[in-house]
């Protein structure tokens, strides 16, 4: 009996294992979680709000067009700068995730009780993340031309429909995902908390007939456009619920195979303690946490705001510090006036 059990188990455990593929998948998965944690992770919503609430701008009027005071949570959702005349994903699916720094994904109307909405584009796919009362928390939308960018849906998928189109849903750890093809050549996936109906409701409000551009309130002098991995423009409802602020973030890898950096501008934090100087700028340099759960960080307070720099992956300290020296803030509060790219002089 003992031998039979041991033999049966050995037989079932064997089979090809591709270690390098496993490592790649683990690195990718871990990096994605770090990005979410430090960039648009709603688990750290307070940090996101702190990061963005003071960043520049686009403060909305506190009066509605009819003259009545706006109600908290009823501020119309602002959008990134529109690009008129550019081909939409509805017309030409190949523009989706083309790495052009354009957003081809939107949600119709204003989600009830919205607190945070971010558009992001990277080569391969585009993202829309939002937090609203009507969605019961955070929702992440990914749209791509190729299914490979949407990742594994996991086991136990069940059939569903989105706008009458065939879809599948799956539950994982209390979240529900719905995946479908809104148009030929486009795959989309929505992850939401709570019931699958929430994810489906968001899915049915997505639209692909608008084009916006990524806008960031800074430049990184001396860095080339190809270094850009991802660009994000984020809208955050202010604490009074009467206005919203806009900010931008970029992720870049200046050296192939080297570390990835994230640069964001946001409100100055009271726990910032200046302890170093980079190119005449007083900064706080924070090493990675001992457990590796927080990456190295540099904060540069300026003009009532703070630029945040994070490094993901090992790399020379000089390269990280060089980013701070290259950072040039762009004045003004309107994202329509912000540059479409953080690169160049």
């Amino acid at each position: 009996m003992d031998d039979m059990i041991a033999t049966a188990l050995r037989e079932r455990a064997e089979g090809d294992i591709h270690v390098e593929q496993l490592l790649d998948a683990v690195r990718t998965g871990a990096r994605r979680r770090q990005r979410r944690r430090f960039a648009v992770g709603f688990g750290a919503a307070a940090a996101v709000v702190a990061l963005l609430a003071g960043a520049g701008m686009a403060a909305l009027p506190d009066r509605r067009p009819d003259g009545r005071a706006a109600q908290p949570g009823q501020v119309p959702l602002p959008r990134p700068p529109a690009v008129v005349g550019a081909p939409t994903a509805a017309d030409r699916p190949e523009v989706l995730g083309s790495g052009s720094g354009l957003f081809h994904l939107d949600i119709s109307g204003t989600p009830i009780g919205w607190r945070y909405v971010a558009w992001a584009a990277t080569r391969g796919f585009e993202e829309l993340t939002l937090e609203a009362a009507e969605t019961g928390g955070d929702v992440r939308v990914v749209a791509a031309r190729d299914l490979i960018w949407l990742g594994e849906l996991g086991p136990g998928a069940a059939p569903a429909t989105v706008d009458g189109l065939p879809a599948e849903t799956v539950e994982w750890g209390g979240s529900h995902a719905v995946r479908w093809q809104p148009r030929p050549g486009i795959w989309a996936q929505v992850w939401g908390n709570g019931e699958p109906e929430i994810a489906i409701a968001v899915a049915e409000r997505l639209r692909f007939d608008k084009v916006y551009r990524c806008a960031v309130p800074f430049r990184l002098a001396g860095y080339a456009e190809p270094a850009l991995n991802k660009c994000s423009t984020d809208m955050v409802l202010d604490e009074d619920g009467l206005s919203a602020t806009t900010a931008g973030t970029v992720w870049l890898t200046p050296v192939t195979g080297g570390p990835e950096y994230q640069v964001s501008v946001g409100r100055s934090r009271t726990d910032t303690v200046l302890n170093d100087t980079i190119s005449g700028r007083e900064v706080q340099v924070k090493p990675a946490s001992a457990g590796g759960s927080a990456p190295p960080e540099i904060r540069y307070p300026f003009d009532g705001r703070t630029a945040y720099f994070w490094q993901f992956g090992a790399g020379p300290a000089e390269a990280f510090r060089a980013l701070v020296a290259a950072f040039t803030p762009v004045p003004g509060n309107d994202p329509n006036d912000w540059p479409a790219t953080a690169f160049g002089s």
Binding site: L22, V26, R27, G29, R33, P155, A290, G292, S293
Partner: peptide, 22 residues
């Protein structure tokens, strides 16, 4: 299950990665 097991191992390693030093 072979495939579920591989997903499980990958998930565990992803969780372990950021706290590897500890």
């Amino acid at each position: 299950d072979r495939h579920l097991g591989e997903d499980l191992a990958q998930e565990v390693l992803i969780r372990a990665y950021p706290r590897w030093n500890r």
